[in-house]
């Protein structure tokens, strides 16, 4: 009996010691620093950040640690000081984040388009219509029990966009959510697409996630309303303001923002998904905005995602004018 007890205690000590040793390995290697990045799910779940991480870590003594959450939660993380920087896609909320003094050095890094997808037989007849008209038809069909709409309902960037689209079409999202045909999934884009598939419903999606799910044959929904000014989707990087959170790793956050906007970082966005999906999931925005290579799209991005006529007004640049040359 005594021997048994001794062996149990010995085993417990061994387990604890080897566990501690193993977990110490996750500490960054000697001389490397940690940068915590809270990111919108679409950038993370599509895998583009994996490629960016690999390229960045090879050049800099910084370990990137991505936390994949919706835009709403990413901003909350940064407010609380739990993230050194954020990658998000909801310009109105980004503006509030800057104005409250929590974020600085915002840079637009990439864009693509949202799409309204739905069942192939398109019961509301929205195929090819402009977004506002399409939403009118969905409301009519929904109230006549012919269509269902699934909303993210999770305060993400896509959800913010959806609310904006309803407002542009003359509806108040708060009223619609009480109606029977309007469902809220309260979850990420991928799950929401699958729920829409099950319910034969319409939903708003970012193209990256949609293409990925369509390719894996998890959904058969079709893009019914796509590319256009109203559906533009713009991704930005914002550093946590060191004045608000002195603990934040501001130096490395700026190094990473510089990398994302560099030719190398932009080329990763441009190339990602071209082989697998026949088109890029995210389109680089830096050169487009600087040199206005496509004036129409540049104007769309400016109209939707600029704050007081600039991607980051001078008072929120933390003295880093060089980023905005």
């Amino acid at each position: 009996m005594k021997r048994n007890t001794a062996m149990v205690i010995l085993a417990a000590i061994l387990i604890a010691a080897s566990s501690v040793l193993y977990l110490l390995r996750s500490q960054p290697a000697q001389g490397r620093r940690v940068l915590i990045v809270s990111t919108t799910t679409s950038l993370f779940d599509t895998g583009v950040l994996d490629e960016i991480e690999e390229a960045f870590e090879a050049e800099h003594p910084v370990d990137l640690r991505f936390i994949s959450v919706g835009t709403g939660l990413a901003i909350e993380h940064a407010r609380r000081g739990d993230a050194d920087m954020i990658l998000v896609h909801a310009p109105t909320r980004e503006r509030a984040f800057l104005e409250e003094g929590y974020g600085v050095c915002r840079k637009i890094i990439a864009y693509n388009f949202f799409a309204i997808v739905g069942p192939g037989n398109d019961p509301a007849g929205i195929g090819g219509l402009p977004p506002t008209e399409a939403l009118h038809r969905i409301v009519e069909a929904g109230r006549a029990d012919r269509a269902v709409w699934v909303s993210r309902g999770d305060d993400s960037g896509t959800h913010s966009k959806e609310k904006g689209l309803w407002a542009a079409a003359g509806y108040d999202w708060e009223d619609l959510r009480d109606e029977d045909w309007y469902r809220e999934s309260g979850t990420g884009m991928g799950r929401t697409l699958q729920i829409a598939e099950e319910l034969q419903a319409y939903t708003l999606t970012d193209m990256g996630t949609y293409l990925k799910y369509a390719k894996e044959e998890l959904i058969t929904s079709e893009v019914l309303v796509g590319e256009g000014e109203a559906l533009i989707n713009v991704y930005s990087a914002i550093a946590t303001n060191p004045a608000a959170n002195p603990d934040a790793n501001f130096e490395d956050a700026l190094t990473f923002i510089e990398f994302l906007t560099s030719n190398e970082g932009q080329a990763i966005f441009a190339g990602y998904g071209a082989d697998a999906y026949g088109r890029s999931l995210f389109l680089p925005a830096v050169k487009l905005l600087r040199e206005r290579t496509d004036p129409v799209i540049a104007a769309w991005i400016e109209g939707f995602a600029y704050i007081d006529g600039s991607e980051c007004p001078p008072e929120y640049r933390a003295g880093r004018e060089d980023l905005y040359g």
């Binding site: 996750s26 915590i36 799910t41 779940d45 599509t46 895998g47 994996d50 991480e53 370990d63 640690r65 991505f66 936390i67 994949s68 990420g188 991928g190 799950r191 990925k212 799910y213 894996e216 998890l218």
Partner: peptide, 24 residues
């Protein structure tokens, strides 16, 4: 943990992640 690759990714968080990534 935040499901960080190389630091806090565990079996359960990896399952949740790969499911949302459509890697069934």
């Amino acid at each position: 943990g935040g499901n960080i690759r190389g630091a806090t990714r565990l079996l359960t968080t990896a399952i949740a992640l790969e499911t949302t990534r459509a890697e069934i």
